[in-house]
């Protein structure tokens, strides 16, 4: 009788025995009542074709439940439902709010490793379908994020200006506004483009022209004077944030805006991750 050592089995057996005994007892009681019982009590005055009914008071438990339900009904109608009604959207808003609060407190001061990891996660979900999982732009289908600028891209912007590429007030909403088209042309444009795309190395015609024509907005080092104009040397936080907000319309095509889809910390993280792609070159 090994199975009897188990408590649940013993309890089940005990329960079965109890049910059996109770059933036998109840059946015996009613059999006895049918055989020997006599009706008693005071009949009500009215009867239906000779069939009468005893006077019975409502049971106390039933009366309390009845009155309680009425009280609860009034409360539910006036307070319970109007003030506490469930709403799917309400629950969603609560969920988002709680998550944002947790996110902000957890990543109030993220380390560079945190940002890198977060940036990689966001990049793989939101950016990689176009820029590729390695960020190289899938053979020219999107911007190659391991380089800042290619020569043809610089030439395209010099030729068309930044307003022609999208936003009429300057494509990406930098404080210095739009870049006019055709600031340079021909061999001059070629020289500057080679200089910019080549990583601002060396001196000569390209470097001189850059200092004379481009540096007034983009800064003598091409870093955009602390966010006044686009940084031409690396993907700094500002340009990544601007592109995510405004989208981009360049020589390759149009990148949609990701406005409102990422938090400021996530945007920063994406910038950190994108910069990490071109490190070690």
């Amino acid at each position: 009788m090994n199975w009897l050592s188990d408590n649940v089995n013993r309890l089940a057996l005990l329960g079965a025995a109890a049910i059996l005994i109770i059933v036998i007892g109840v059946v015996a009681k009613y059999f006895k009542q049918i055989k020997e019982g006599k009706s008693e009590g005071v009949l009500k005055e009215e009867n239906w074709d000779g069939i009468g009914e005893y006077k019975n008071n409502s049971p106390i438990g039933w009366s309390l439940a009845f009155i309680g339900t009425i009280v609860w009904g009034v409360w539910y109608w006036l307070v319970g439902y109007p003030l506490n009604a469930y709403s799917q959207i309400g629950e969603y808003n609560k969920e988002v709010k709680a998550y944002q609060a947790k996110f902000e407190s957890k990543w109030a001061n993220p380390s560079k490793e945190d940002l890198l990891g977060m940036g990689e996660g966001v990049f793989l979900v939101q950016c990689s379908p176009c820029h590729g999982i390695d960020g190289t732009g899938i053979e020219g289908k999107a911007q190659d994020l391991t380089h800042r600028l290619l020569k043809k891209e610089v030439l395209d912007v010099i030729h068309r200006g930044s307003a022609a590429l999208g936003n009429p007030n300057g494509q990406l909403g930098y404080p210095l506004g739009m870049m006019p088209p055709g600031l340079l042309s021909g061999a001059d444009a070629e020289a500057v483009a080679s200089y910019v795309a080549g990583g601002f190395k060396g001196s000569g015609k390209g470097a001189d022209l850059f200092q004379n024509t481009c540096a007034s907005c983009h800064g003598p080092d091409g870093r955009g004077m602390n966010g006044m104009a686009p940084n031409l040397r690396e993907y700094d936080d500002t340009i990544v944030q601007h592109v995510l907000e405004h989208g981009k319309h360049g020589i390759i095509g149009r990148m949609p805006s990701f406005k409102g889809r990422l938090t400021p910390v996530q945007e920063k993280a994406v910038a950190v991750y994108i910069r990490s792609l071109s490190e070690g070159e």
Binding site: Q126, P129, C130, G132, I133, I138, K141, M255, P256, F258
Partner: peptide, 20 residues
């Protein structure tokens, strides 16, 4: 909101070319 015409064309022609 987040895909472009050329992306769709690439993707419908050969999905693994953009989403490995």
């Amino acid at each position: 909101n987040y895909r472009t015409s050329d992306w769709h064309a690439n993707h419908m022609w050969e999905p693994t070319s953009v989403v490995p």
